[in-house]
Design a protein around this nucleic acid. Structure first.
Lengths: 234, 234
DNA sequence: CAATAACATCTAACATGTTACACACCAACT
DNA sequence: AGTTGGTGTGTAACATGTTAGATGTTATTG
């Protein structure tokens, strides 16, 4: 009857309520990005619900969110599938990624403290070790951590989440291109260029490297499409 | 029993299935951005469902999506509210907007045909007329249409949707700042600068204008916060 | 009288039942 | 044989019932 005063009264800060749908979302997202679930594969909500011991509702909610993110394709009254790879969408995601990241780097370069840069370098150090050991999993974990660090260093609330979401397509593609083992070295070189650029306060330099890197990735994607066309759409 | 072959068989192109949740989403989003629903206001799912003649399910789905978009705040087991204005989040949204838009403009400038530019100018023409008539509604409609045109001209699939989503916060703020009637003229000037920059293939020029514009908007937001603090969070 | 604990109330989260529709399959017809 | 139309099946979309928890209020206790 009496409406509660609009939220001024309660916790202003976002409560990190981990609901079931959040958990399901996290699990499925991880499975998709890590390619445990392959592009094109059917997702059976009911089965997922049973396996996770929840009802269909939180599963549907999680999948809706993943559909927004472009990680699953929902065909009404027909089925839900792990999103296939669409070259044009990947291109767009690359574009958005570069746009956001160069802007973030520009901003970070202006305000990075020595401690921040030290943290970057520490991350790079560990990346190098992971690359030496050919530890893909560890490498990509550090890779994402570095991107998060850069976003955080830009000092913009919520930027990390936005960037992470827009990157999800690309994160997935990267995992699929893992076996092209030269990638890690190249990626590492790119990261070093980015960090140098920040240290030197010359972000334009980093952008150049990124562009070249992406062109390279495009080529490998075409190669992958020849080998495994079933992963691709269109 | 037999799983249908994973989607290779059916329509590859996105089916524009307008489900109820899509409709509810569109209606609510429009209401929020146009400030028919004020920041901080309570949203009663059940009431909305009754008013629209649907069940609670599509309403919940739509609201979840709006929460992802940052247009509503959901407090579990407590209530759902039209998102209040958070200056730091608006700052982030501005950052993302500028990053995406300058990148898009840069790309568009490289590939814009005379026809595309003519379409831009036609839009500007109509904006000027709307500004003369003080027709806010029409003006902002054209404004959004121009941004869409620029995104489309960049030739990247899905970029328009991404940009539009990330802009929603800002679109809402703009409407709230409508009464500062000088805005339309300023916005129009900004748009003219952008289009000139594209025509001259000098996107750097447009970025400068945008920055100034945003600084101006920040000042007005602080003013609004003094006058109507209930619209703001934090 | 202040602090606190029990309670009532309202809501989102969750569970489950129902419906409508897209697609596949097969039969009939040209 | 290729095309068309009817039918069955499985799924997402939708409806509705139930549960858990957050908050405001009131009672209780020191």
């Amino acid at each position: 009857m009496q409406l509660r005063s609009p939220s001024r009264n309660f916790k202003e800060q976002k409560i990190v309520s981990v609901t079931r749908k959040d958990q399901v979302y996290t699990i499925l997202r991880q499975a998709i990005i890590s390619s445990q679930l392959s592009p094109g594969e059917t997702i059976r909500k009911e089965l997922v619900a049973a396996q996770l011991g929840v009802s269909r509702t939180p599963v549907s909610d999680a999948i809706n969110r993943l559909a927004d993110e472009g990680l699953v394709e929902i065909y009404p009254q027909t089925g839900t599938f792990v999103a296939r790879l669409w070259l044009d969408k990947i291109e767009t995601a690359q574009f958005v990624r570069v746009a956001l990241e160069t802007a973030a780097i520009r901003r970070t370069a202006e305000r990075a403290t020595p401690e921040t840069i030290a943290r970057f370098r520490q991350n790079l150090e560990r990346q190098r070790k992971a690359a030496d050991k050919q530890d893909f999993e560890q490498f990509y974990e550090l890779d994402e951590a570095l991107h998060d660090l850069i976003c955080d260093a830009a000092g913009l609330v919520g930027l990390r989440e936005i960037a992470s979401k827009e990157r999800s397509q690309i994160d997935r593609v990267r995992r699929l291109l893992l076996h092209y083992e030269t990638r890690m070295i190249e990626t590492l070189a790119e990261h070093e260029a980015i960090i140098s650029a920040i240290a030197d306060r010359d972000p334009g330099k980093a952008a150049k490297t990124m562009e070249a890197h992406i062109a390279q990735m495009g080529k490998m994607l075409l190669h992958l499409r020849d080998k495994r066309p079933e992963l691709f759409g269109s």
